[in-house]
């Protein structure tokens, strides 16, 4: 089962029925940005900008390495950015510029 065909047969989200370890009954309170990200997801869905199924497929399109290494909400925000680029709602340059602005604003407040 280590062949590359396995990557085609099972996309990263398609794990129902696979062997897996014991369930650890974990939970955590969302970080403020995680909660914002969740609310953002709902708003994008309500406004039919990015719906829940598009988001799920977008996460899967990140590929198994990113799905494995990013946390739950990290995958979501990365996916929203990718889909917004594809739909030409925003450009990568605009996002990069705005991220630099947000960071600069934080620096100016400390």
């Amino acid at each position: 089962m280590n062949g590359s065909e396995q990557l085609l047969k099972r996309l990263p989200n398609d794990i129902g029925g696979l062997e897996a370890p014991k369930i650890e009954q974990t939970d955590h309170d969302l970080l403020p940005w995680e909660k914002r990200c969740h609310a953002l997801a709902d708003i994008l869905d309500f406004h039919k900008i990015i719906n829940t199924e598009e988001k799920r497929r977008g996460v899967e399109a990140l590929g198994s390495e990113m799905v494995g290494k990013l946390t739950y909400y990290e995958r979501w925000i990365a996916t929203f950015a990718n889909i917004a680029f594809q739909k030409q709602l925003i450009t990568p340059e605009e996002l990069a510029k705005k991220m630099a602005e947000v960071e600069a604003r934080w620096r100016s407040h400390i």
Binding site: L44, A78, V102
Partner: peptide
């Protein structure tokens, strides 16, 4: 310092608001 994805979320949200999508 806010993390990379925290900054990304803020930036994404602000852009979407500025452009009038939400």
């Amino acid at each position: 310092k806010p993390g990379y994805y925290d900054i990304m979320e803020q930036a994404f949200q602000e852009l979407m608001i500025e452009k009038g999508y939400i």
